[in-house]
Every structure is written in C-alpha cells, then in structure tokens.
C-alpha cells in the first residue's frame, strides 16, 4: 500500500464491468417468517407486511440475496480474485458506505429471486478515518421469473484498519521439556513446586534430572510458600521487545525455602525495587495473539508502606 503511485488501484480497475455473481438464487423464497423477524427488528408495524395479502418490506431487497453463514455460492472468480488482491495488500476489513435500491414491484411470499451482480466501479486509493483502502461499487439486478423486480447498488470500503491491532503482541513462551515439565504443570495449577532430592533431601531450582549434591536421580517435590525476598535484580531499559513495556524490573528471588527463582517484580515502581525487598508469588494470566499463558510473578505489595510509597498496588511494576 505504500508509495506514491497506486499500482494496486490500476490492477483493481481491470475488474470494473466484470460479473461478481451470476444467476445467484435466494436461499429462501420470499416468506412471512423472515418478513416478521425483519419487522420485529426494525420496529415496523406497517400492516402492509402482515396478513394474507402481505408484501415484503421493500428495504429487505438485499436480505433475500444474502449468503448467510453458508455463503454465497454464485460468486464469480473475478470477485474473489479482486478480494484476494485487496486482502494481500492489507485491506482485510470491509464496511458498507452507500446503498441505493429501486423497487419495481413489491415482493410477495413465494417469490423466488434470481440475481446477477456486476462490479460497477472501483475507486483509486483513499485514506479515510477507518484506514486506507478502495471503494468498490456493485450493482445487483434482482429478477423473479425473468421479470426485473429490483435493483440494488452497494458501495463498500475495503480497507486496512488504521491504528494498532487490539490483541497484545505475543509474549515469549517458556521452554518446557521433560526435565522441567512438572514445574510448569504446577504453575498452571497456581502452585510453585520446588524439586527435592529423594536421596539427600536437598532442594533445587531450576529443575534438573539429578542432584548436584549427591548425584541421585530420584526426586519428589515440595510446594513453596511463595514467600521470598529480592536477592538481586536488573531493570530492563533496552532493547525493547513488543510484548513488554520498559523499563521493568526482573528479580532473582530467594524463596523462603532457600532456592532462587527469576521473575518479574510487580506492585512497586521499577526504581523502588531493592535487594532484600519482601515479595510473594502471584500467578498472572496473560492473553495474547497466541492464546493464554500463566506465569509466576513476585508482588511487593507489603513493601510499599515500608518504602513510604502510597502508590496503588499494581501501579507501574515492570513485567517480564
């Protein structure tokens, strides 16, 4: 989409005059239940749309041609090709801007619609409040038994949305293997599990296949209380990473049980983190483009008073 010349626009122009759908048929004949649902939605109590001589509200014209969840089977290759070109250029969103309908005769229950759509015009590249894209105008001729009963012209803007995507960029995932899988299973269940050697009873973290003290390969786990203190820390300023918002503090936390663990220090401004700061584990759930993720972080909630900082818990603590 970048650049001064509008090459895409020139390619799109070639689709003007091409059919967008050929001999499409309405999924249902004109019928009273759909008329009634329409009137309920619109709050339209016009008696012309009820009873044995009912006509369909003329403004339903397009509704009878809609593909619905099962799609529009009459669509031509030309329309799909043009849409694909726009999608590839980032113009993945669509919004209707104009609708012009002519009603040549009322539609009545039982009428079976056949429609043909042509791509009437494609604009050059336009920048709008929603984003930059192209206006595409289609004209649909609607017939019943060969008789033209209505003409429907629709103009849509197919555009690349302006602004940031709403989904958070993905955080890096922990590398889970057979040696540490038990730790991450514990985290998923909001338990902080520490490995304990079954031979000599030494606690260890991070998880390893064997004991550094006695060499035993047998182990079990103990659940940590989650209480600890900041043993050391760094404040990350650079380089930035899309999922994180620097500066933020990463702590090496010494748990009450004696092992040390790396995690975010939260609930305190990054520049108020100090060695010896008391913290307590908290399990945070993150939602991002790749799904949900639970991570242990360390909250310094009690420390705020000790530091004379009356800031709200959860205020700018950095996160990893």
């Amino acid at each position: 989409m970048a650049g001064g010349t509008d090459e895409l626009g020139a390619r799109l122009k070639a689709y003007e005059g091409q059919p967008a759908s050929r001999a499409g048929t309405g999924k249902d004949p004109v019928n009273l239940p759909m008329i009634r649902h329409w009137c309920e939605a619109m709050g339209d109590t016009n008696p012309a749309y009820e009873g044995p001589d009912a006509i369909a509200p003329p403004t339903m014209l397009q509704a009878w041609t809609m593909g619905g969840l099962s799609g529009n089977t009459a669509r031509t290759g030309a329309y799909d090709e043009m849409s694909a070109l726009l999608d590839e250029a980032g113009c993945v969103s669509i919004v209707a801007t104009d609708c012009e309908q002519e009603y040549l005769r009322p539609l009545r229950p039982g009428d079976e619609l056949v429609f043909d759509t042509v791509i009437e015009s494609v604009s050059g590249r336009k920048t709008t409040k929603l984003g930059t894209g192209y206006f595409v105008t289609t004209r649909t001729d609607i017939r019943v038994g060969g008789e033209l009963v209505g003409v429907h012209r629709l103009r849509v803007l197919k555009y690349a949305p302006a602004g940031k995507p709403a989904k958070a960029p993905p955080r890096p995932r922990p590398v889970v293997n057979r040696d540490n899988a038990g730790f991450w299973e514990g985290v998923a269940g909001k338990r902080l599990l520490v490995q304990r050697c079954a031979g000599c009873g030494t606690l260890r973290h991070p998880w390893l296949p064997g004991c550094n003290a006695c060499g035993s390969l047998d182990w079990d786990t103990v659940e940590s209380s989650g209480e600890g203190t900041v043993y050391s820390y760094v404040v990350m300023h650079h380089p930035p990473f899309p999922a994180f918002d620097p500066p933020y503090a990463v702590g090496l936390i010494e748990l009450a049980e004696g092992v040390r663990m790396v995690g975010n220090v939260v609930g305190v401004p990054y520049d108020k983190v100090r060695i010896g700061l008391p913290v307590r584990v908290e399990f945070r759930r993150y939602e991002d483009a790749e799904g949900a993720l639970t991570l242990p972080v360390f909250r310094a909630a009690d420390a705020l008073d000790a530091l004379g900082d009356r800031g709200a818990p959860g205020a700018p603590g950095g996160e990893v």
């Binding site: 619109m42 709050g43 339209d44 509200p57 003329p58 403004t59 397009q62 509704a63 609708c99 309908q101």
Partner: peptide, 9 residues
C-alpha cells in the same frame, strides 16, 4: 441493511 430498513420504516 438495518439503517436502510429503519429509513424505510
């Protein structure tokens, strides 16, 4: 389509 329906109504 809803806007169109409301205008017609």
């Amino acid at each position: 389509l809803t806007t169109n329906g409301l205008v017609g109504r």
